[in-house]
Design a protein around this nucleic acid. Structure first.
Lengths: 360, 360
DNA sequence: CCCGATAATGACACCGGTTACCATGGATCA
DNA sequence: TGATCCATGGTAACCGGTGTCATTATCGGG
């Protein structure tokens, strides 16, 4: 009995080492060094692109590494560097499509660099928000993080990251940071385009469903829209502006308010596509046909905007490119570059079928 | 000049260590050991829940760890374990919404476990596909991976993973593996429900837009649908079945074929929502109204299905729950459990407004 | 009260890379 | 030619944990 307990005990102590096949033995830096007849330090120099290696030596070592399919162990390197080769994607964004597209762009940007992308959604309203991020960043010793809106606008967060020596790149709708740490879209220009488009068609009474408070894009989109109208002598009537939350339901709610106005708007600009879809819904329920009775413009150009009927005129945001750019900015420091180009992307209005001149 | 070169050289050799703030000094296992007046091995035992620590000692150490906010370094642990604390999400799936939702479920499942999720999209048709995954798994010494359809059905891939001692969980539309490594949905039951629903309404000539070859779900969905029809004495006419690719465009193409048939079907089952959206489009172009002239059923219950008009009757798939379950299965081994429950999820038909009896 | 068995703990090498520092040899200069 | 300097490669210690195995408490029984 006692003997048995002991027998069981051993594997229990080595709890993490279960019966599964051991990972394949990979070549180590020592193997390479032995084969190349150099010290492992020299191999390390080659790995890290040190300029202090004779060209011959470098070539010979590189060849051996290639032959053996050797890739240095990121964990070991990370341990020594006190820094992992992981990049965190931190977000709390209601728009799944936006997140996944951004993710793809980022992965595109880090491809082949040896870095991996670790996703970390969070809850910006939780009291533990900062602690949660801090723990994540500290524990994983992240090389850097990408912040998506709206948490990219949180200055406490970026201060925390700097304090921990963690690189970051913000993705935002306005200029919030130095070029090296910012990938931005110029939402004002885009919404101005939308406003001009509606004004061109002759709309004068226009409704606006805004983004949620706390999003910089809310401010930017409204500002661009309103300024453009003003330049043409038009204005947003106060009762024609309602809050939204970038969700379908909030779009429905907003549209209900706008369309039950005595003097209802002839066009509605919803600050994202999801909300625009809500406007379609209410328009249909109210017996209004789009675009004859009501013009609708959205923002995002999600795949859905094309599935709606009639297809939604909306603003296309180069999310994929922004993701690629963000990843490259994060990695630039590795190569000793300090990017100074602003990388401001310009969203563009794509005209489809959801707008028309108002009925006379 | 020479002096200057030397001055520049030093930081260049330490290329990765740039001028940025050093990461905060965190408590290490040695700190804990010193404070608790034990060896670091004992602290390690506490960290790993070894049963060979006196209760007093464990408590004392645990308290100190809590006080100092100590969390063991996953990199160092991983190095020693020869295994990281990362979980890979490997996918090549055309449906972004599916991926994001699954991702969220997985993250939900690993929350608090100290594991992180590393996303790794890939191209299953690339000749380098297996090598790419192998490199990823080997390099990062992943604790385990989650495979989404259709690559979850790739037996070469799973063989490779086993060979490397890498745990995996497959997410699939049929029983492909042992319960411990499988999270499945029973697509047959769901599509049978869809078939019965259409048959109940009196449809006899029904079109089917299939999934792409290579997806197990293609087989399952068709089989469930066809068998249910057969039980009621109905059958799928050969010309009423067309290939799809789970994309909007393929839905459009398929619907064009089906709706230009001399004897066109009165109902179409599209094997996912994206393709169903394509059917809406073609129906509208053809002047057919949904559901009076044409009933449509989809599969997935993506957010979009609700934005379409009329709202799409479709099959809801508990993706989030499946994700959670997949993560838990992967982590179960840690706690010494071997899950034997099949975790077969049953998608359900959700009735909305896109179906009606055929015109007499 | 002592002994053997068992539970609890510790010493030390090691995981796979890195840095700090030292040793060497060749080139340069007076 | 010797002193000085630079480029290069080697060695040992370290990053923060874990495995192995030896060693020290603890306990029940004779």
């Amino acid at each position: 009995m006692a003997r048995k307990a002991q027998a069981q005990a051993r594997p229990a102590e080595a709890v993490a080492e279960t019966a599964r096949a051991a990972p394949k033995r990979r070549a180590t830096i020592n193997d390479i060094a032995r084969l190349a007849k150099v010290s492992k330090k020299t191999v390390s120099r080659v790995i890290n692109d040190s300029p202090f290696v004779k060209e011959d030596t470098r070539k010979r070592i590189a060849e051996i590494m290639l032959d053996l399919g050797y890739e240095p162990d990121p964990q070991a390197r990370g341990l020594a560097f006190r820094r992992s080769f992981l990049i965190g994607l931190i977000y709390d964004n209601p728009n799944a499509q936006f997140v996944v597209t951004m993710q793809e762009g980022l992965l595109d940007g880090v491809r082949g660099s040896g870095f991996e992308l670790v996703v970390h959604p969070c809850d910006r309203n939780s009291p533990k928000f900062l602690d949660d991020v801090r723990s994540f960043v500290e524990r994983q010793k992240l090389y850097g993080v990408v912040l998506l809106p709206p948490i990219s606008e949180n200055d406490k967060l970026t201060a925390l990251l700097e304090d921990h020596g963690c690189r970051y790149v913000r993705v935002a709708s306005a200029v919030l940071d130095t070029p090296a740490r910012l990938v931005s879209s110029n939402d004002r220009i885009a919404t101005a385009e939308a406003a001009n488009h509606l004004a061109d068609m002759g709309h004068t009474r226009i409704g606006l469903i805004e983004g949620p408070p706390g999003f910089r894009s809310r401010i930017e989109r409204r500002a661009g829209f309103e300024e453009a109208l003003k330049k043409r002598g038009l204005s947003l009537s106060k009762d024609c502006v309602v809050d939204g939350a970038y969700t379908y339901d909030s779009g429905v709610a907003g549209a209900k308010v706008l369309l039950s106005l005595k003097n209802r708007p002839t066009a509605i600009f919803a600050c994202n596509d999801e909300m625009a879809a809500g406007v379609y819904q209410v328009a249909r329920e109210s017996g209004l046909s789009v675009p004859e009775d009501l013009s609708i413009v959205g923002f995002d150009d999600t795949p859905m905007s094309n599935r709606l009927w009639p297809p939604l005129t909306t603003v296309r945001w180069p999310i994929l490119e922004m993701g690629r750019s963000a990843a490259r900015k994060l990695l630039a420091e590795l190569r000793g570059e300090t990017p100074t180009t602003p990388d401001a992307f310009e969203p563009r209005l794509v005209l489809r079928k959801s707008t028309a001149p108002p009925r006379p």
